[in-house]
Design a binder for these strands. Sequence first.
DNA 1: CTTCTAACA
DNA 2: TGTTAGTA
Length: 136
Amino acid sequence: MGDEIRRNMALFPIGIVMKLTDLTARQIRYYEQHELIMPARTSGNQRLFSFNDVERLLEIKSLIEKGVNIAGIKQVLSPVNKESDDATVLNEHTEVKRRELTDKQLHKMLKQQLLGGNRRGQVSLIQGELSRFFNP
DNA sequence: CTTCTAACA
DNA sequence: TGTTAGTA
């Protein structure tokens, strides 16, 4: 997968990302504080977002709109890897560590249910076990 | 002019 | 989250 370096290449400042995601700078920085994203920084401490960062923000936005809180999003979205996600280490081709199989599959299922529109016959998970991840 | 951090009428 | 202050 060679396109990964391009997807993880930090390119745009927060202003562009705001327009691309319809999120406020406040929200974007807030999500970074909670480690939902880890954009690179310029020498002047300016944030530089990669394509992956933008896509991740869109997923976060989608989840927020569905009423999922930060804690819940952390469970659904795969944890950010500073190595593979940060553009400052693009030269070091690091591998994304695989998480436990069963956990990974569960996360994928939850992500599909939360991001994709709920399809018939699969609301039990969200209404049951996952209720604690949603806002009151 | 754009972005950053910190803080709160 | 919004928003503002004071910088860089």
